[in-house]
Design a protein around this nucleic acid. Structure first.
Length: 103
DNA sequence: CTGATGACAGTAC
DNA sequence: AGTACTGCCATCA
């Protein structure tokens, strides 16, 4: 079983307008403690990817992308699908993905 | 094998 | 609120 596949598959289950943290995705993928592996798996994905990588955030709703360009893209994409921000952070309340029920 | 690194997370100050 | 430190784990020189 390839961890990267599990992670990408999990990220694709996040509905539009919802967000999740790296740690949460790792847990949902059955890989508790591999939050960093999630980031590693998403690194390299771009605007062309079918994977909604923009819905994955750091703890507390912070954008954890080192590249400012990509970080800005993530913010724009999220705001575009209706995700609300509080300054530099995403308001996780009411927008955090519920692993149990999709949508 | 050892040490450094990183789209993380939690805690402490 | 911002910085620092620790725990974590896969990857790589």
């Amino acid at each position: 079983m390839i961890a990267r596949e599990l992670i990408l598959e999990t990220v694709m289950r996040i509905p539009e307008g919802r967000v999740a943290t790296y740690g949460q995705v790792a847990r949902a993928a059955g890989l508790p403690g591999r939050a960093r592996l999630v980031g590693k798996s998403l690194r390299g994905l771009g605007a062309e990817s079918i994977v909604p990588w923009q819905r994955v955030l750091g703890a507390g709703g912070r954008i954890s992308i080192p590249d400012a360009q990509t970080a800005r893209l993530q913010r724009d994409l999220l705001q575009d699908e209706g995700v609300r921000f509080s300054g530099k952070r995403v308001l996780l309340a009411g927008q955090l993905w519920d692993e149990g029920l999709d949508d």
